[in-house]
Design a protein around this nucleic acid. Structure first.
Length: 523
DNA sequence: ATTGCCGGGCG
DNA sequence: CGCCCGGCAAT
């Protein structure tokens, strides 16, 4: 019955760290080619450890005992698959906790890992300095019900496949924005790293310095598995954005570093990118985890966030299995484009808004979808549009944040938010890039939105002009979708089935497994 | 023939 | 609900 789930994945193919064969002390990376089980009769005090045949970077093969490789872990970063097997090798208990600390790594180490690989091993003085943060994270994650149970199985997933899958995922889901951290095994991508402060890097809150910026939303009443209407994710149309100049060059500085990322991007995709305009879109990634509304600017960032915070994993992206994909969605910030239904809007004077966009309240509020088009689930506690005017027809968004969910079946309805201020230059995100993230929060998930910060209440009666600029125009499902897609146009991109194959069906995204529309490789 | 996935069934 | 599959339709 469940036979296919019984297949345990070995660590073959996993990337590991191992002491240099030349003995010069510099650890090297390699890929596990084979494992020999030397059960209980090895010299190593009877412990039943395995010997790993590792294909080193230079192409040579070498055997390492588990301990040797384990040492590599502790010095650098825990690499997923081995971790689990190490559990068996060590005694129970102690290593477990050790793993929690050594393995869980400072965020910085995590950052470095993907690109550093062999290069920066052994620099862990920073680890200590961030351990507090790490602890904080643990607290957080423990307060959220995280399906830890699932992980154990996934941990053993073949790392290379996973990496590949994630690369594919990131490519296919966000063709417009490169997600830097996904340098599989090369040392480039330095820009974003360099942006960060030299010291310990706080991934989530230190938004102004790093490539990630974010806010977190304590709001609840929604969870990742919330179904959403059968919107066709790719049928949305771009929206006109009356490019407003001037106002609000964010106090946070020039512009988000991650932004210029997209210009000059020259990533090649193996398939032609469907007519989307680079310069007008900014893709953000939002955590869909229950009670979490974290939004990060890079896929890697959100994945790491999910991995560490929600999934409770501590290793870097190398050992991820792509499951994070299920827990975040892609948000497209539309900065300049033509709207189907909104094109006729008259621009709103930005001066209405607070002239100086204070980080905490640039984004006034949400309203929900016009009721008739909202996902069925959120029919409670919802009152009709307070202002009485229809947000859609009257609001003149200066910038739209178009939430495009990658996981339509489990995520949110598409919502577009006019930002209260923006630059035509596409740096709209600066406007809601709080220097310090958690001042206000937005629930991107279900319609009811909460702001904890100082925000203008939408229901407050103000001049319409004022209000509309702050009202969140919400899109109902694709406004008169041009294509008569009774059936979602067959995506021709890579799908889980193709990517992983039938034999790896358990690596498919859930939707694929259910024979539903694939949400991992949307196109 | 293959593949994506809708619609519907089952527990 | 989560899970699965028959069968249609696009390729």
């Amino acid at each position: 019955m469940h036979t296919r789930r019984l297949v345990k994945r070995s660590i073959l193919g996993s990337r590991v760290y191992a002491p240099s064969p030349t003995g010069d002390g510099a650890p090297v990376t390699g890929v596990v080619q084979a494992v020999k089980q030397e059960n209980r009769d090895v010299s190593t005090a009877g412990s039943r450890c395995s010997v790993y045949t590792v294909l080193l970077q230079d192409g040579s093969l070498k055997e390492f005992s588990e301990e040797e490789i384990a040492a590599g872990f502790n010095n650098t970063a825990a690499k997923g698959p081995l971790k689990s097997s190490l559990k068996h090798c060590f005694s129970n208990g102690a290593p477990e906790s050790h793993q929690g600390e050594g393995g869980s790594l400072s965020p910085e180490a995590v950052e470095d890992q993907p690109m550093a690989d062999g290069k920066r091993v052994g620099r862990d003085p920073d680890t200590r300095s961030v351990s507090l943060l790490e602890q904080k994270r643990k607290v957080v994650s423990s307060s959220i019900d995280v399906p830890h149970a699932r992980r154990s199985e996934e941990e053993e997933v073949d790392m290379d496949k996973v990496t590949a899958a994630m690369v594919l995922t990131s490519l296919s889901t966000s063709p417009l924005v490169r997600s830097p951290p996904f340098k599989v095994n090369e040392g480039l991508s330095s820009s974003w790293k360099d942006n960060g402060s030299a010291g310990p890097f706080t991934p989530s809150s230190n938004s102004s310095s790093g490539g990630y910026w974010s806010w977190s939303a304590p709001s609840d009443q929604s969870n990742p598995s919330t179904p959403s209407p059968p919107l066709s994710a790719d049928s949305f149309k771009p929206f006109r954005v009356p490019s407003l100049g001037g106002v609000g060059n964010g106090p946070a500085g020039p512009e988000d570093p991650s932004l210029d990322d997209q210009d000059g991007s020259s990533l090649l995709f193996d398939e032609p990118i469907p007519r989307k305009r680079k310069n007008s879109m900014k893709v953000m990634f939002k955590c869909l985890w229950k009670n979490c509304g974290k939004v990060l600017s890079t896929a890697a960032g959100i994945q790491r966030h999910i991995r560490t915070i929600h999934l409770g994993r501590n290793c870097d992206s190398d050992c991820s299995d792509g499951e994070e994909d299920f827990y975040y969605s892609e948000i497209k910030l539309n900065t300049d484009s033509v709207a189907d239904g909104l094109s006729s809007l008259s621009p709103v004077s930005p001066s209405i808004l607070s002239p100086v966009p204070p980080p905490p309240s640039p984004l006034p509020s949400f309203n929900q979808l016009s009721d008739s088009h909202r996902p069925p689930q959120s029919s409670d506690a919802k009152e009709p549009h307070p202002g009485g005017t229809t947000p859609l027809s009257r609001s003149a968004p200066s910038a739209l944040y178009l939430i495009h969910t990658d996981h339509a079946y489990q995520a949110t309805a598409p919502v577009s938010i006019p930002s209260s201020n923006s630059n035509s230059s596409g740096s709209a995100c600066t406007s809601f890039t709080p220097t310090n993230s958690s001042n206000f929060s937005i629930s991107w998930q279900s319609p009811p939105v909460t702001f904890t910060g100082s925000t203008v209440s939408p229901s407050k009666s103000q001049g319409f002009g004022e209000q509309r600029s702050q009202t969140i125009a919400v899109l109902s499902s694709p406004p008169r979708a041009t294509t008569a897609l009774s059936r979602k146009v067959r995506g021709e991109g890579k799908k889980c089935r193709k990517v992983y194959g039938m034999e790896n069906r358990d690596m498919w995204c859930t939707a694929c497994r259910w024979k539903k529309a694939c949400q991992r490789f949307t196109d």
